[in-house]
Design a protein around this nucleic acid. Structure first.
Length: 467
RNA sequence: GUCCCCUUCGUCUAGCCCGGCCCAGGACACCGCCCUUUCACGGCGGCGACACCGGUUCAAAUCCGGUAGGGGACGCCA
């Protein structure tokens, strides 16, 4: 057990998106690798926007990915007294002060500053104010250092320095007495003894103010690692308009959790030329220092490739269980049909997602009601009738206990009648599946069983002769 | 506008800290060939990048300076 303590701190205002998942993953990886502690904290100080549905959705996403946490979930909304206490301390020490400016006044000043091309920051009206108007609403502001610079060493980006002049006196407590984000994070990270803060790099600008707070409060400053954002194909911050961003949506689209994990860990991080990482390998090889400094574009094609890889290498039984809901969603019942695991075996090599696999599995359970006319039209009507007849005859009189055995039967049919495999295989494929894109004939016949195969060929035969 | 950060094939990246092994390697995608009863899988090959300009050096993707472009932050949101 090391004393490394990291945390993932999402705000419950939506589902767990891929960006958040990657941040959580990096934290988790480091904790697991070093025997540290991974803490889950829900940042719900914004009572207006936080919902318990979001909390559930986030937990569901993390569980699906297998990102288990050691402590928490802690809710900031339950620590309000703690934050209040520290606000009081700061106030007493003169490191914070009450500000009576109204939100409207501040808005006006901010807009004016923007218009005049100045940095919109608090002008310090109440900083040296001596009077304390009774009963007047006020916010508490942190008395930030005025000169000099604040810098910190980022594990990913290196040393980052901000002139203190750029930072104004931030509000740490609102008029209604609730604490604000930048203040809560510091108190929480400090009291939870977080040693390394790994978060999205949209927080880089918050970091110097937080460092100042740590110092004012007398807390040790943790290490920081700001991971770059994930962009959409147009290089803009990834959002819904780029498609799915929720990890649960990826589950529903038929992605395997290990595929998404593998994709996410390689987005912005690498270990030589390796592409495939099992859970154990990523834990072993991950190094926060190897995370790139620039943002990366989310690429579904590569995710698909990874997903296909994991589908190919998964146990058919496991896949069958995961596939079931996708079939059910299509109104397909597997009752009375072939064993789903057997079906999966024939589809594993050809599907990128479980959705795709489900689509391709339908014909096993629902015999085709119509056929690919264009494909059928490539064959002579008489030939089709003859092929169907010979195949039926052969199948009913022979053993069909293995794929090689069945393949051999079809070869025999070809040689006995002087046909090419394409003349036999394709029509049979159409008869059995309705179309031309399907597993090998041997695989289908084996999975469907001779009886059902003959039934379907019979049906196709009638269809063809009726035309 | 101000501040902070970033910049290698279309995309993810290796190399950059510790200049020469890099006329830049791998992967996804794409294209072609092979395998093949379809669709896939697989195998082989191809296309394709150091943002730009200066400087330092015998030598720069790698060091220095500038320019351009992109992103982020500037809330009583987190």
């Amino acid at each position: 057990m090391s004393d490394l303590r990291v945390r993932f701190a999402p705000s419950p205002t939506g589902y767990l998106h891929v960006g958040g998942a990657r941040t959580a993953l990096f934290n988790w990886l480091l904790a697991r690798q070093q025997g540290g502690t991974f803490i889950l904290r829900i940042e719900d100080t914004d009572v207006e926007r936080s919902t318990s549905e979001s909390v559930d959705a986030i937990l569901e996403g993390m569980k699906w990915l297998g990102l288990d946490w050691d402590e928490g979930p802690f809710y900031q909304s339950e620590s309000f007294p703690l934050y209040k206490e520290y606000v009081r301390k700061l106030l007493e020490a003169g490191k914070a002060y009450k500000c009576y400016c109204t939100a409207e006044e501040l808005d006006a000043k901010r807009n004016l500053a923007m218009q005049e091309g100045r940095k919109p920051k608090y002008d310090g009206t109440c900083r040296e104010r001596a009077d304390q108007p009774d009963g007047q609403p006020y916010v508490v502001r942190f008395r930030a250092p005025q000169g000099g610079v604040t810098s910190f060493n980022d594990l990913i980006k290196g040393t980052i320095t901000f002139p203190n002049e750029e930072l104004d006196d931030l509000i740490i407590q609102r008029t209604d007495g609730t604490p604000t984000y930048n203040f809560c994070v510091v108190i929480d990270d400090a009291t939870m003894r977080i040693t390394t803060v790994i978060r999205g790099d949209d927080h880089v600008n918050n970091t110097p103010r937080q460092v100042q707070l740590y110092e004012a409060l007398g807390f040790p400053v943790p290490q920081f690692a700001h991971v770059p954002m994930i962009l959409g194909s147009d290089k803009a911050r990834l959002s819904k308009r780029h498609g799915a961003t929720s990890v649960i949506a990826y589950r529903d689209m038929g992605y395997l959790p290990e595929a998404l994990m593998n994709y996410l860990v390689r987005l912005g991080w690498s270990s030589g030329d390796d592409e495939i990482f099992s859970r154990e390998e990523m834990i072993q090889k991950f190094d926060i220092c190897n995370v790139g400094r620039s943002a990366s574009v989310f690429n579904t094609e590569k995710l698909n490739w990874l997903n296909a890889h994991y589908i190919k290498n998964s146990e058919p039984e496991r896949l069958a269980a995961l596939l079931q809901p996708h079939l059910a969603a299509r109104g397909v019942s597997t009752l009375g049909g072939p064993d789903l695991a057997a079906v999966v075996k024939t589809l594993q090599e050809r599907a990128q997602t479980l959705e795709e696999m489900a689509e391709r599995a339908v014909f096993y359970y629902n015999a085709p009601v119509n056929y690919d006319d264009a494909a059928l039209a490539k064959f002579d009507k008489e030939l089709l009738a003859e092929v169907f007849a010979k195949v039926t005859e052969k199948l009913s009189g022979s053993a069909t206990n293995s794929i090689p055995e069945i393949d051999a039967l079809f070869k025999e049919i070809c040689s006995e009648n002087g046909w090419k495999m394409g003349q036999v295989g394709q029509p049979v494929r159409i008869a059995l599946s309705g179309g031309t894109q399907a597993p090998g004939i041997g695989e289908i016949v084996m999975t469907l069983g001779a009886e059902e195969t003959i039934r379907r060929i019979q049906k196709a035969r009638e269809f063809v002769s009726g035309k």
